[in-house]
Every structure is written in C-alpha cells, then in structure tokens.
Design a protein around this nucleic acid. Structure first.
Ligand SMILES: [Mn+2]
Ligand SMILES: [Mn+2]
Ligand SMILES: [Zn+2]
Ligand SMILES: [Zn+2]
Lengths: 129, 129
DNA sequence: TCCTGTCTTAGACTTATTCTAAATTACATG
DNA sequence: CATGTAATTTAGAATAAGTCTAAGACAGGA
C-alpha cells in the first residue's frame, strides 16, 4: 500500500494511507462522503478537505478513476482499466462488468467523432443468489 | 405543444408551456439551471422551483428523460427512445448517437444481471466540419 | 536551528436541488 | 355570480456535494 503510493509519486502520509486502505484494491464505487465516513472510523480527526484532496490526487496520479454514474454525486473506482458498469436500480449499487464481457460494434460509422474512451452503462436488477 | 402536454395528462399552464418550448423537440441536453435561464428571457417571473417541478413532471409523464452524464448536474433529454451519447471532452457538449449506430453484444453472458436498459457512453472529441 | 515547501485543518463559500409556507389561479358546484 | 376546494406558482429557506481560504503543523535541507 505504502509502496503503491510511492510508485505513483505520492508522498505517503497517515491520512493518505487511511484513504488508500478504504478505496484501493476494492471493487466498491464509493462517493467521497462515504470514503470520509469510513476513514473517520479509524482516524476521526481527518478533515473532509483532505479526503476530497486525496481522492482527486489519486485520480490525477492514475490510482483511481472518477465516474459519473449516480445522480448528485461522483463515485470513485479502484479499477482503472477500461470496463463497463451495471447499476442495480433498486439498491443503487454499482457493479463492474469486465471489458471482455461485452463487445461494442459500429464505432467506425461515427465519422464525426474521435472516440477516445467508451463504456456501456447497464441498468436493471441483480439476480439473487 | 399544448396538445402534447394534454396528451400526456399534464395541465397546460403558461409556465409549463414556456418550459416545453425550451426543451421539447430539441436535441440539446440542458441542465435545469440552463432551462431556467432560457425560460426567464421570455417570462422573467417564472420561479426556479417551477422549472424544477415542471422538468420532473415531464420526466414522470414520459416527455423527457433525465440523464446522469455530467459531473455535478443532471441534464434533460427530449429524446425518450433508447439511444447512446457522445460527450465532447473539450466543450462538455453531449450529442445523441442513434440506437442503431452501435450494437452491443455479449449481454447473454451476464447471467447475474437482469438488464432492463443500457446505453453506450462515448467520450472524445468531435471532428470539425 | 531556521527556512521553505508540502500537508492538513476548520470553516466559509458555491452550486445544484429540494422543501416550505403562503399566495394565486383554476374548477366545480349551488 | 359566489364560494369552497384543489392545483399551481412563488420566494426564500434548507440540504447536500464539492471547492476554496487562511492558518497551523510537519518534513527535509542548509
Ligand atoms: Mn481533479
Ligand atoms: Mn422525479
Ligand atoms: Zn467500476
Ligand atoms: Zn440524448
């Protein structure tokens, strides 16, 4: 964890390590406020600004992506490789769908657009089990 | 326009007609605040709450969809049939991509998910011309 | 130790959106 | 028409996500 931060050119501080522990290597998609709540359980003195700053720093350094998938609040994603998302419309929970699970065809017909990145956003209900 | 509202079970009022004129039948994806700004040019007395209420009413009645594509603010879409979106990363502008322009394959592999709805979200730069 | 740059903090601020309570308008009925 | 009731609109307060500010804490180098 500490090594990961160093490798990405991030000075490891106790606050940053606490945030890293909560988001990196997980397959959740928490909002900044959710991260702050979890971090505070362990380190109750960490400020909101530090959590926001740290998450944005992690995005800039390529440790996280920020996704606009939920109304009203951005979420952070520790899976930085391209992939798709399924959103459960009952719970609001966001699930990763592996890149290779879906194929998108027809891009060559979009002459007017220089597509740099894409994802499929699926909504519905997760089957129990 | 007036007929459209009636057909969807919406009491036409001057305020609702003003909002309808600004959003329905257009291929823009304005935020509520942008709609309010445009409506006020013609009817400066219309309140913010009425614009938000009207947009939400139009969504409930199926005249609009609300899309979560932009950080910090929802946008409204007069194209209610399924389609995809291209977002210009320089300007932030959102363009409609027709449903038939792209094919998404592999859905049958997603056994754990009951997919009710999907769209492809593309990001990049629109080619000049 | 002192200097300087980096981090963190509390709280103020901004922006999008919803809520509230009161006023207006529309509608139906006698 | 008169009047009661429901629907609509309004201004402004309230809420929530996110950023900014200014001051203090901390770390590394001279
Ligand atoms: Mn950023
Ligand atoms: Mn709604
Ligand atoms: Zn993801
Ligand atoms: Zn659209």
């Amino acid at each position: 964890m500490l090594a990961t931060l160093r490798q990405h050119g991030i000075q490891p501080t106790p606050q940053r390590l606490a945030v890293a522990k909560v988001v990196l290597g997980r397959d959740r998609h928490p909002s900044a406020e959710e991260v702050w709540a979890k971090v505070r359980r362990r380190c109750p003195t960490v400020s909101r600004a530090t959590v926001y700053n740290t998450l944005n720093l992690f995005v800039d350094k390529g440790l996280l992506t920020m996704q606009v998938l939920r109304e009203g609040t951005a979420v952070f994603d520790a899976e930085v490789r391209p992939h798709h998302h399924f959103i459960d419309e009952r719970t609001g929970r966001i699930y990763d769908v592996p890149w290779d699970a879906l194929q998108v065809q027809g891009q060559e017909s979009l002459n007017h657009y220089d597509v740099r990145e894409l994802q499929v956003v699926l909504r519905g209900r997760r089957r129990k089990e």
